[in-house]
């Protein structure tokens, strides 16, 4: 009897240890939003030393022969967890890592996917943007993310997309589209035909204030074209998956259009950038997460873009 107790206790401890180990090896919490399409929700936070930059929506698509990763995460550890998650869910090998654009919360999991048979895909301008910003991102990574990133964390694309590209994952086609300057000057969107899902990444923000780091007018132009697509759902780079397209675009479109009108009008009145930063669009504040973090930066960029209009 005593013996059984000891054995079962041992078993329990053993099991506990295994569980613990499995837990520390860890996967990422993902939702299946359609057959073979998985999504990890990023919370509305600024990148910091607690979240280590893991704040964006990331995910993957599973075909019969290949898996394509949709953004690798905000740091190598998150990339590793995403990779563990994929390997737990399927035996299909990872063939592609698609980087939707240059921002750190979307590309710094790249390193964890490097290996034979994996190709990195980016906009034709992605390598240039990585080159221009990479040094700065690395230099500030420890201070801002609490993660020491190194040059090997900048993984340049193997395949550059100029217009669009079709990836065959095996009975599953993805259309990768390179956009004109919008959220950044190197944005990609991905259409999964099987599930009729449009992965917009940061071309769409839901709840989280849209962040302009490319061109306001360009972004509105791209959104107009995208809104004509008939899809079942869209996945933003920040915020929940949305079913109602293009209605899901409305708040972002309203905000961007407001910026366009108000900043343009201030420029025409001969006002300066400092005035625009202080005055434009403050009433939109309660409607968005992280408004204070990005609104004034948006005005700054928009002003610098629009003052060349005429």
């Amino acid at each position: 009897m005593k013996c059984i107790w000891i054995v079962s206790l041992g078993l329990c401890l053993g099991l506990f240890a295994v569980q613990c180990q499995a837990k520390t090896k860890e996967t990422l919490e993902v939702q299946k939003i359609a057959p073979g399409l998985y999504f990890h929700f990023g919370h509305h936070e600024l990148p910091n030393r607690d979240n280590h930059g893991a704040i964006a929506n990331i995910g993957f698509v599973v075909g019969k022969e290949c898996v394509a990763v949709l953004d690798s995460g905000g740091n190598p550890q998150q990339g590793l967890l995403l990779k563990n998650t994929i390997e737990k869910i399927t035996d299909v090998p990872i063939c592609y890592v698609i980087n939707s654009h240059v921002h750190p919360d979307h590309i710094f999991g790249n390193r964890s996917f490097k290996g034979r048979g994996v190709q990195f895909i980016g906009h034709k301008n992605l390598a240039r943007a990585m080159q221009a910003r990479g040094g700065f991102y690395l230099q500030r990574s420890e201070e801002q993310l609490g993660v020491k990133l190194a040059p090997k964390d900048i993984v340049l694309p193997d395949i550059e997309v100029t217009d669009s590209l079709t990836l065959d994952l095996g009975h599953r086609l993805l259309t990768v589209t390179a956009h004109g300057s919008a959220h950044t000057d190197n944005d990609l969107s991905v259409l999964d035909k099987n599930s009729q899902t449009l992965w917009l990444s940061d071309l769409l923000f839901v709840e989280h204030l849209p962040v302009i780091d490319g061109s306001l007018k360009g972004w509105l132009r791209e959104l107009k074209a995208l809104s004509a697509l008939k899809v079942r759902r869209v996945v933003p780079g920040h915020g929940p998956v949305m079913g109602d397209w293009p209605a899901a675009l409305k708040p972002q479109e309203d905000y961007l259009t407001m910026l366009l009108k108000e900043v343009r009008s201030m420029i025409r009145q001969g006002k300066f950038i400092e005035q625009a930063i202080a005055e434009v669009g403050q009433m939109a504040t309660g409607r968005w997460a992280l408004f204070d973090a990005f609104h004034k930066k948006n005005i700054t960029l928009v002003f610098a873009e629009l003052e060349w209009e005429d």
Binding site: L46, P47, H103, P104, D105, N125, R128, A132, R133, F136, Y137, R140, Q144, S181, T184, D185, V211, I212, D213, G214, S215, G218, A293, K297, L301, E305, W308
Partner: peptide, 22 residues
């Protein structure tokens, strides 16, 4: 200087090159 993805680089390089010298 604020953090995040804010790098001290211009946003739209092609547009800037196109206007160069204006």
């Amino acid at each position: 200087a604020s953090g995040g993805c804010s790098a001290p680089i211009g946003a739209d390089l092609d547009a800037a090159m196109k206007r160069l010298g204006r």
